[in-house]
Amino acid sequence: MSLQISDLHARIVERTILRGISLEIRPGETHAIMGPNGSGKSTLSKVLAGHPDYEITQGSVVLDGVSLLEREPDERARMGLFLAFQYPCEIPGVSIANFLRAATQARLPEGESLSVTDFYQKLYHEMDALGMQRTFSSRPLNSGFSGGEKKRAEILQMAMLQPRYAVLDETDSGLDIDALKVVAGGVNRLRGPEAGLLIITHYQRLLDYISPDFVHVMVAGRIVQSGGPELALELEKRGYGFLEVQYGSSELSPLAGAGAPG
């Protein structure tokens, strides 16, 4: 049982971004991926979720024994993969509650319909636990939301959908300390023996609140170092510069340029 990424290569148009990622996340583990801008962190999250803009050129991803890459994005999600987006989309006219109802309904066996009472009970329970106003759930999803509200809505969705593996793509970016605590609280509530987490972040700050079991450093489409939480602290102190000199940066790497072969 794990989310197993093996030698994953991916590109967008003619530009190769991932150049051989291998990583295994077991339920109960929390992994953090750190790295400079342009290193491919967000691409990894989108490739896992099945974004149509990316082409997989090599490697595999296996979720609890089932190969993921041939599956449609919605199937992957129902298999238990959740992505908290760095830039969540606005869904005009659709309330958070209605959106989550559709997502919850989609997880029920065919022919079964959702109990609306049970749904709202659970929704309000989760909202209370995350310290959110209940009126929040009747607002159109992400429409006119502040950055912090968008990230809170992501965390609420994650709490409701109880994924087996959750990938959080820079969920901490642009958050003030209060929003950051809500996000961290939501993540920590999901942690447990049943859930595996992959936290993508540029800064060490979020890791003050969510202490990871493993920290990986990604540079120019590869994981170049892995270690424990102390690695994050070291990066915070030294910055990414020394790693980019050693392993190449998006600017320095000849592979990062447009038109470079995969």
Partner: peptide, 9 residues
């Protein structure tokens, strides 16, 4: 894509 990622067909 956002909707699909939430498991919504």
């Amino acid at each position: 894509f956002y909707c699909l990622q939430r498991g919504i067909p």
